[in-house]
């Protein structure tokens, strides 16, 4: 009887081990399937990511408090130390801005007169939403942040994200309360750009480093270190003229730039709707069909 009981125990142990091993194999296969699904169908994954980000808004708010407090303290100390310098700089800047204001008003007047003469159809005014950066999901493989504005705030996929320094990236997917922004330094990012002052067009390729690369330069124009890089309206994805960065190195046809925006220090961003068509609405149509 004792033997029978131990046999039964052994049998149940074997069954238990078998189930455990099968579950393990299933989970490994499931993980691989997820990797393949992510490659084939991004819509389900995007929706899942947006859903999780929406749920975790309160958690992200709490975890960002210490970092925000530390940054505020350090910036306060810096501000106090530089108060006198900053004051005189602002006075100078104010005088300059006053002069520029007069000049801008004059140009604006001229522009509207010329537009009337040419029957020019003006581009629609851009609308924007300012949003706090809730979480930073950037690492050595992907560069993205989660902003505290979603479809509830009329944010749409593909809208352009800027801050006070220049271009930040583009909205990759949108939840109800949050949206994920793919930064221009991300490996998957491609931005049509123009190098100033020559005006030569090219593509800015993100490479997960602080120094994205310029490729496919059109024409045989020389680019120099220190040249300014701005967005180009080619392909209708970005409006022209948003500051992107400055050329820092040119080695064997490899042109690298330093972005004006410090991607590690994003706290507030502005999500702008320029009403542009371009590549993204087609993708949106596919999403809607699904």
């Amino acid at each position: 009887m004792v033997m029978k009981s131990s046999d039964a125990n052994n049998f149940f142990m074997k069954i238990k081990n078998l189930i455990k091993r099968s579950m393990l194999a299933f989970l490994f296969i499931f993980a691989f399937c997820l990797m393949l699904i992510g490659k084939a169908d991004n819509v389900i994954i995007e929706k899942s990511r947006a859903f999780v980000a929406d749920i975790l808004v309160p958690v992200f708010k709490i975890i960002s408090i210490p970092a925000e407090t530390l940054t505020e303290i350090s910036s306060n100390i810096k501000d106090i130390a530089n108060l006198r310098k900053e004051n005189s700089r602002l006075r100078r800047e104010n005088e300059l801005l006053k002069e520029l204001q007069v000049y801008a008003a004059k140009i604006n007047n001229e522009k509207s007169q010329l537009a009337t003469l040419l029957n020019f159809v003006p581009t629609p005014n851009a609308s924007y939403v300012s949003a706090e950066v809730l979480a930073d999901s950037s690492n050595s493989y992907a560069q993205s942040v989660i902003a505290m504005a979603g479809s509830d705030n009329k944010i749409k996929k593909g809208q352009i994200v800027v801050n006070g320094d220049g271009l930040v990236g583009r909205v990759a997917f949108v939840g109800d309360k949050t949206s994920r922004i793919i930064l221009i330094t991300d490996l998957s990012s491609r931005v049509p750009i123009s190098v100033e002052p020559s005006g030569v067009k090219g593509i800015l390729l993100g490479n997960n480093t602080p120094y994205p690369q310029i490729i496919n330069l059109l024409g045989d124009v020389k680019v120099n270190v220190g040249d300014k890089v701005v967005t180009s309206s080619k392909a209708g994805v970005y409006p022209s003229g948003i500051p992107v960065g400055v050329v820092t190195s040119i080695n064997d046809n490899e042109i690298k730039i330093r972005t004006f925006t410090n991607m590690s220090k994003l706290d507030m961003v502005r999500i702008v709707d320029y009403g542009l068509t371009g590549i993204l609405p087609e993708q949106k149509c596919i999403v809607e069909k699904d």
Binding site: F60, D136, S140, V145
Partner: peptide, 16 residues
């Protein structure tokens, strides 16, 4: 969750 907290150190987001 902590891994996603903004850190605001230059270049940290590239080596997190």
């Amino acid at each position: 969750f902590i891994e996603h907290a903004p850190v605001y150190f230059s270049y940290f987001s590239f080596i997190r």
